Amino acid sequence: MNWKKTAIIGTAAIGAALLFAGCGGSGNEQAASDGKPTKIIAGLDDTFAPMGFRDDKGQLVGFDIDMAKAISKETGVDIEFKPIDWSSKETELNSGRIDCIWNGLTMTPERKQKMDFTNPYMNNDQVYVVLKDSPIQSAEQLKGKNLCGQEGSTGEAAIEANANLKNSFKDFKLYPDFTSCYMDLDAKRMDAIIIDSVLANYYQEKAPGKYRILPGVVVREQFGVGVKKGNTQLVNMLNEGMKKVIASGEAAKISQKWFGTNVIVGQ
């Protein structure tokens, strides 16, 4: 995910949702006469800048939000974003409370067993972040240090999958969001964060000279939209809309707006 997150404004009530104009549907449980859903409810972590987060006015903004608007226009189907507990995202999807997960969602083999994905639309890395003035200069120097990450993230999965790596840290602490991670890093209660490169870059851009990304990559990833297993129609519809948005050049414009470069894959 690249320059994510306006930081840390008080998040509006978690039940709030943002509706994008499409065809004016009445709910995700209904379908139009052509078989398309009248509305898609997309779950997101609304603190994950620059993919999807709240601005100073409490409005949902971000790269994925703008991409959804463009795809909504192409497909003629409304897309409503609903903030969810990121650690419970699969439960939200399987229960039918949301139709898809659209928020810099990494396509991992484990997740592909639990849900279907659209085509990938962006690359991402898991990286380590430290304070600019930290004496830590490499990943190897994190041995015996305190590391934190977000619950339910691929950063957590990467650490948990490697027992030797996990045991090399003094502590590996998980938080419900990266905002809390950065607060503890700032307070020097944590020595480093494992985090998406897009969010790490965003924080560095918003607070120049405060943070530093350590050399190297923990895991290389790609982002896609996650859909309930077996919902081929929705996957195909989103893929078609995404293909049109990429072909028209609109996706590149959105990428330039949020990242200052074209990060779109599948062009």
Rank of each mutant, 00 (worst) to 15 (best):
C148P: 02
M115A: 12
N103T: 12
A163V: 00
D78Y: 06
W86N: 00
V127P: 14
L105C: 13
K82V: 14
L174H: 02
Q113D: 00
Q137F: 14
S134N: 13
S168A: 05
D184V: 05
T154A: 12
E80V: 13
M67K: 01
N103E: 11
K73G: 07
S87C: 02
D78P: 07
G104P: 07
N146T: 08
N146H: 12
Y121G: 12
P109I: 06
E160P: 07
E90A: 08
W102Q: 09
D99W: 05
E151M: 07
E80R: 13
P135G: 11
L105A: 14
T75C: 14
L165S: 08
Y175N: 11
E156M: 14
Y128P: 03
A68C: 02
I79W: 03
P109Q: 07
S134H: 14
I79A: 06
K173E: 01
I101V: 06
I159M: 10
M107S: 07
S95N: 10
P135I: 04
I101F: 07
G104T: 07
F117R: 00
E140D: 15
A163F: 00
L165C: 11
V127E: 15
D177C: 11
I101K: 04
K145N: 12
P83Q: 11
P176K: 03
L131C: 08
T118W: 06
M183G: 14
S87M: 01
W102T: 10
S87D: 03
D116W: 04
E160V: 10
N146A: 12
A161L: 09
S180T: 05
C100A: 15
D177E: 09
Q150M: 10
Y182T: 05
W102D: 08
M122N: 13
A139R: 09
A70H: 01
E151N: 09
E92S: 09
C100N: 10
N146S: 10
I136F: 13
L174A: 08
N146P: 04
D184Y: 12
K143T: 12
R97Y: 11
K132I: 03
Y182K: 04
Q150H: 04
S72H: 00
I79R: 03
Y175H: 11
R97E: 12
K143H: 14
K132C: 12
N123P: 14
I136R: 09
A157P: 07
D78A: 12
S72P: 01
Q126T: 06
E151G: 10
T75F: 04
G76V: 11
V130A: 14
K89M: 05
I159V: 13
S153W: 05
A161W: 06
E156V: 06
